[in-house]
Design a protein around this nucleic acid. Sequence first.
DNA 1: TTTGTTGCAAAACGTTTGCAGCCTC
DNA 2: GAGGCTGCAAACGTTTTGCAACAAA
Lengths: 147, 147
Amino acid sequence: MKEVLPIEEAQRRFEVYLQQLKLKKTPERFAILNCLYANEGHYDVEMLYTVLKAECRVSKATIYNNLQLLLDSNLVMRVVLDNQTAYYEKATLRPHYHIICRKCGRITNIQDQGLLNMLKTWQTKNFRMEQPTLLLYGKCKRCKQIK
Amino acid sequence: MKEVLPIEEAQRRFEVYLQQLKLKKTPERFAILNCLYANEGHYDVEMLYTVLKAECRVSKATIYNNLQLLLDSNLVMRVVLDNQTAYYEKATLRPHYHIICRKCGRITNIQDQGLLNMLKTWQTKNFRMEQPTLLLYGKCKRCKQIK
DNA sequence: TTTGTTGCAAAACGTTTGCAGCCTC
DNA sequence: GAGGCTGCAAACGTTTTGCAACAAA
């Protein structure tokens, strides 16, 4: 679950990626990367904007643009919940899925090799599958108790 | 996969549901129900609006309002894809999951008791799970050939 | 007749685009 | 210095809300 690149390595790879595409190393780009890599958890654009705004001058347009860049570089992942909001998190080295509490909204990552294997054996001749999106909604321990 | 209520039964249940909540049986409400039950497939609001507009006078606000009602009555299901769009379909009697082709956008329903069972055994003491959302993105047979 | 429902328009969001000025390289 | 990148504001697309007119019960 903690299998993510160290922040310095992520930065280095992002530099290489930008260089390859002849794109510029702007402070805003690294601010977004750093925010996601320095923290656990899942951020929507609004949350990112709030956090980043506190430490530097940045606009939402820039955040949107650069999140796309970070997705393309595979350093960041995106998950869309059934509230139609996109959340961003640092990429994990192995696939993971999400548990979402309906009550408190908390998003937790889970990994399960058995499940992953099962899904892999599922390849039908009619469909070439990408990494599956598995969202488990429900109530977390804490919220279960509150009832 | 074809395990859905006959349209007449769905209508009857919707009537009962409306009655219980002392809501009115408006033609718009049944037009939406009928559209989803008379057709296979997954409709977003825009598609529903186009179809319904052709056969009767209806506004999008009404469609939005009544889709919520149909969801609450469990006669209609909603799935949100990673394009952040909500799609609506008639409810199936057993859980199903979705295969989505990245190329042509086609959404196909799948059922798998083995997978369902596996997910059920997954109940952790920390989480009470609702029906899982499983989205399988990839390329369908047809689009695989086009390459 | 009563009350919920409708269509329309406006508002409220989230996201994208256009553009003048700025900053990497 | 050139071209990409930024912030800002406007545009855009989707969903919600307010309201007067309407229709189901």
